[in-house]
Simulated assay, not measured.
Amino acid sequence: MKLTAAVIGCGTISKFHFSGLDKAGAKIKWVCDLRKESAKPWMDKFNARYTDNYMDIMNDPEVNVVNITSISTVHKEMCLAAIDAGKAVICEKTLTVSAEDSYEIVKKAEKAGTIFYTSYMKRFLPAVEKGKEMLPSIGKILSTSIRAFQPWGDMWSGNPKEGACHTPPGGTSKLVQNCGGGVLVCGGSHVLDLVCHFLGRPNRLYAYMNIPKDRDYDLQAAALLETDNGPVHYETLMHSLDKLGYLRDGWDETIEITGTKGRINVYCPMWDKGDVKGSMMVHYDNATGTATEYRFAPVSPFDRAIGFFCENISKGKQGAQSRVTGYDVDELISQIGKSAESKKSVEIKWKI
């Protein structure tokens, strides 16, 4: 099946999706944004039609793929409209800003048989793929640590005076208006997806969040997650330390999984630099006493993710990634918030 795509939302992250669709051979027929000037470079590049009303896309029978890269707070209405219109959907993370809304979407997609993806692209980093491949070699999993420490600048000295992270007195920051939260949503969501990808869904958690009194979003979130593959020590953090991380660029996103026969360490590059900074995986084998380091050439995880999605869509199948991926993460975000507020552990009751 030849893919004819439309992209809704032409902000910063859309360039990665345009690249992936182009490399996958999709025809990009429509671009949609409230601001025509944001859409114009893509209109010109792909000779695409412009609209500021996404229903024009839903009503076009030639379009069979809708790629949503708008702000998370409007994903729900667009996803539901695309499912109703019989389109395959690729939606940027997070799926929505509430577990209930995400559940409603994926339940409808499951019932309709819609091919539906939430684009958690870090699954497609070569080091993550290699780590997943070699996971059986470390035996029974005993413990996992996973973190996303991200350089946001000096967020700890006080409420920023301006910009998306400024919380006006009695008001709402642009960060929350657009994304629904702080570092848990913006940075920690990706590694929550990797928890599910490597270990399966957690069944209980106890969480902590740091939300300053002058802010409406979190600067730090941590949780102890119980899974069928042992405990997971999870944390995400905004920081201003320049040389953290294995590439010493301030980006410290790592996974460490320890088993009875060895250990796997995965090191991820900065989210938007995968095409210029490589990922790395280290495997320790206890039987031989050796550690093998796998350093991978830079490659865009966005291109690889969207290539995977498009290949499956062209074949008319969902493929290995579940429709409910986006709901899984949003449910975990919700439960972390509930646990942190109540200062109690919570059992996770998955709806689907």
Rank of each mutant, 00 (worst) to 15 (best):
R215I: 05
D214L: 05
G113Y: 12
I83Q: 07
F18Q: 08
L175G: 02
G11C: 00
M1Y: 01
H17N: 05
K343E: 13
V299N: 06
F198Y: 15
V191E: 06
D33K: 06
Y50Q: 06
A297I: 07
R295N: 14
A221Y: 09
F46N: 11
F296M: 04
G181K: 06
M238S: 07
W30I: 12
C268Y: 00
G200Y: 08
G86D: 05
D303I: 09
W156G: 12
E331K: 15
Y267D: 12
G230K: 11
S339N: 02
S342G: 02
G274I: 03
K130C: 10
H166S: 04
Y294W: 12
W350E: 04
P160F: 07
G319I: 04
E37P: 09
F16Y: 13
T114N: 11
D22H: 14
Y284D: 01
K132H: 14
Q177H: 10
K344R: 14
M270T: 08
Y50A: 10
T254S: 12
D252Y: 13
I141A: 10
W152P: 05
G171R: 04
L219W: 00
D272T: 11
H233K: 14
D52L: 11
K161H: 11
A164C: 06
T258C: 12
V89A: 00
V191M: 13
S70A: 15
R35P: 03
Q321N: 02
G326V: 10
V65W: 01
S137P: 07
L184H: 04
K27E: 15
K15Q: 04
V195E: 08
T73Y: 02
L175I: 05
C32V: 14
H75Y: 08
G181F: 02
G259F: 02
S345I: 14
V299L: 03
F198A: 03
N210L: 11
C310H: 05
L135E: 10
V74Q: 01
I211S: 01
P301T: 10
K36C: 01
